[in-house]
Design a protein around this nucleic acid. Sequence first.
DNA 1: TCCTTGTTATATACATATTATAACAAAGCC
DNA 2: GGCTTTGTTATAATATGTATATAACAAGGA
Lengths: 123, 123
Amino acid sequence: MIQIEIDFNSDDALYLQLYNQIIMGIAADRFREGDSLPSVRQLADSIGINMHTVNKAYTILKQEGYVRVDRRRGAVIAIDVDKMQTLAELKKQLQVILAKGSCKNISKDEIHQLIEEIYEDYS
Amino acid sequence: MIQIEIDFNSDDALYLQLYNQIIMGIAADRFREGDSLPSVRQLADSIGINMHTVNKAYTILKQEGYVRVDRRRGAVIAIDVDKMQTLAELKKQLQVILAKGSCKNISKDEIHQLIEEIYEDYS
DNA sequence: TCCTTGTTATATACATATTATAACAAAGCC
DNA sequence: GGCTTTGTTATAATATGTATATAACAAGGA
């Protein structure tokens, strides 16, 4: 059984919350290369949302190379590594976040520290 | 004169691009504490978008403590530092980004390196 | 007085998000 | 072979979010 927490009061769209949590689940090694995710219908039922909302999350995960879709086994975790592109995208997103921190007097060291903290939470 | 680059083909909403660029402008010291931003009407005209779109960006910047609105001087850069809350929000956003990197075989060291790279760009 | 300021309100158009049904071929199961 | 479940696609309806167009108001500057 998969564990997904959806906040229906969040500003983030449902499909985005799903997308984010699956990626964080892979990073935290709760889902592993080769694992199957529940079918779009199953997961939609268990969360209590529409099939197409789940399908949208799965489709984006596929496009961005986190899962591969197998006719027999459904959505299977399968990472397609494109390091250059990933680094470029991460940089863009980090620039905005670091700027927010910088405005609020958060030092570079505190950011590094925050990174360490997040990695420690993986244990 | 303020320098804002809007990409009308971006997936990001116009007000969000504006919001991000003003924050990045403050972080890069192009806008400083006490500086006035253009009026909503002026900026809207110079970019070629609607007044309310600019107003939305300004309103969020105000809510999040990046500017203060002075009846005489318009939107003035004025940072309201709430370090605890800022750190909590940054952490949430970083968790998702780092998870993406982790899935794509980007090491912790490479993240630290990316942070350094972004800070170096401020010079 | 006149103009500009931020602010608020209303209306419209368009895009995105979410749900509801429905249908299809491919694969697994009995 | 029949039945179910799979991913996938299509269409429609609704709700929400984004952007624009006008308009009006009080407060402050020139």
